[in-house]
Amino acid sequence: MTDGHTSLGMPQLPAPDYPAEVRARLEEDAKAIIDRYPGSRSALLPMLHLVQSEEGHVTRTGMRFCAEMLGLTTAEVTAVATFYTMYRRKPSGDYQVGVCTNTLCAVMGGDAIFEELKEHLGVGNDETTPDGKVTLEHIECNAACDFAPVVMVNWEFFDNQTPDSAKRLVDDLVAGRPVAPTRGAPLCTFKETARILAGFPDEREGAVGATGGAGPASLVGLRLAKGETPQHRIVHPRGEAAREEGE
């Protein structure tokens, strides 16, 4: 409640503009994004990632910029920016740590990981550590169920986590020590990730060639569809063996 009225988290207009040199740089990037689409309003999603890469979250100024560049109202931009959870509406840490608490990850230990990280970092859901390093949140399924429980850092995968391994992970992030995802591209900051999601080249060494395949459990159905003989035993990445159903 604010002054007796319910706050809906909507921006108070008018928003200030970017400094001239920042706006000139962003306009050049924005034009490159807009040119990819037959209709300019289709560029809104990557444009929001672009302004997020500037300040680490989507600010009132960023939404004003998107509206002006795309010929939209600020209300139209706000509706999109507040709908998708990948757009941050308040300052975030350098590393967005998301713990999957959807059904499978939860029962495999995701809930325990999330609770221990909250206590370890001294923050709640969607809160940032005082040093600005880590923002913690629980997230929905990221289609990596055969590696459960999964923790994401700036949308890179850290598979088969435990409470202890997750605490070591965030400690390394806070201390500035090198951290390597289980698979996929090298880790970068949240602002750098936002720029990549805006569609600009990923300049991290080895990022383009980095890959990570599906786990054994996901591939059983594919092998059956191809008429191949399925494996008799699926070995969990943490070393736990589990027989296929019906063996």
Results as ranks from 00 to 15, higher is better:
Gln12Ile: 15
Pro19Gln: 14
Asp17His: 15
Val235Arg: 14
Leu45Asp: 03
Pro16Arg: 15
Asn102Lys: 14
Leu187Gln: 08
Asp159Gln: 14
Val153Met: 07
Ala15Cys: 15
Gly62Pro: 01
Pro163Lys: 13
Pro91Asp: 08
Asp29Lys: 15
Gly110Cys: 09
Gly62Gln: 01
Thr73Pro: 02
Pro46Met: 03
Leu222Met: 10
Val150Gly: 01
Val179Leu: 11
Asp171Lys: 14
Asp202Phe: 05
Thr211Leu: 12
Arg36Asp: 06
Thr135Pro: 07
Gly206Gln: 10
Gln12Cys: 09
Leu50Glu: 01
Val80Pro: 11
Glu115Pro: 00
Asp35His: 09
Tyr84Ser: 11
Leu117Met: 09
Ala75Trp: 07
Glu21Met: 11
Tyr84Glu: 10
Ala166Phe: 06
Val151Lys: 10
Ala242Phe: 08
Ala112Cys: 04
Arg23Phe: 05
Val107Pro: 05
Ala43Cys: 05
Phe200Tyr: 15
Lys226Glu: 09
Val97Trp: 03
Arg88Pro: 00
Ala214Arg: 15
Ala67Trp: 03
Leu8Pro: 04
Thr229Ala: 10
Thr189Gln: 11
Asp171Pro: 13
Arg238Glu: 11
Thr162His: 09
Phe83Asn: 14
Asp146Gln: 14
Ala207Gly: 01
Gly98Leu: 13
Phe83Glu: 15
Val123Ala: 02
Pro149Tyr: 07
Arg64Asp: 02
Glu119Leu: 13
Arg88Leu: 08
Arg223His: 06
Arg204Pro: 00
Gly98His: 06
Asn102Arg: 11
Leu121Trp: 02
His232Lys: 15
Tyr37Ser: 11
Arg89His: 12
Glu68Pro: 04
Glu205Leu: 12
